[in-house]
Design a protein around this nucleic acid. Sequence first.
DNA 1: AAACTTGTACTATCTTCGTAGTACAATCTG
DNA 2: CAGATTGTACTACGAAGATAGTACAAGTTT
Lengths: 121, 121
Amino acid sequence: MPLYAQLTRAIQFAIVTGRLQIGEQLPTVRQLAVELRVNANTVAKVYAELERSGVLETRRGVGTFVCARHFEARNRQDSQAILGDLVDRFVEEAGAMGFSPDDLIAQLQRRRKKETKKNVQ
Amino acid sequence: MPLYAQLTRAIQFAIVTGRLQIGEQLPTVRQLAVELRVNANTVAKVYAELERSGVLETRRGVGTFVCARHFEARNRQDSQAILGDLVDRFVEEAGAMGFSPDDLIAQLQRRRKKETKKNVQ
DNA sequence: AAACTTGTACTATCTTCGTAGTACAATCTG
DNA sequence: CAGATTGTACTACGAAGATAGTACAAGTTT
């Protein structure tokens, strides 16, 4: 998986899990580039892409921040549409491998049961 | 999406939906290549890949056929493992976009309800 | 065995993608 | 305003991927 994709996912994940708080400043393009031994442009592109999708907010000369409202601003209709598309893709891909939507549901529920058990112990 | 991927999915889908019956012969590499305005090698690669994964069976001088037992031969453990991996990937990707596994389940169930309604009408 | 049909191996070319380098522009701070 | 810090535009290089062309091998049919 390309560097830029890894980084994108890592940042999204950090935000979703709360490891990056809303409003928090991210490392400088150069800082992160040095730390990850990567070109600054690679980081910059990730930041730019995440800004386009409303996850980050960047102010020149200041830095890049976790956008105040992203998942919040994504209102109910948007969320539903995005989720719908995502699931449609999943269903299609699974279908090509011979699994039905019901198979997916079943597997997801098994997963959930396993997780709750883990948390209880 | 590259040609070979499109073709692969199309064939898998045709098999899963029964449009291609088990044991049925597929078009010749060249036939299909002409029909799709594509190089024969592209088709050949798809056939070869699908053979490797056990979906097709090819006999030189004769043709390529839908393998008698593929989804059948994939026993219960295999199926479970494959499905598990698939769903894990889905969950991870959805998580990066801020959706929980429960969101996925909910959406899948909504989808199912819609489908059954369509079929009843 | 000869002719034909099938899939396959090898190679070349073209394109796309990812990353890096360099130079630039915008903003802040003293 | 001067200098520092931030992100950005443009370019180029390298690698990987996808497709096509040609020639070959395995099998069937007559």
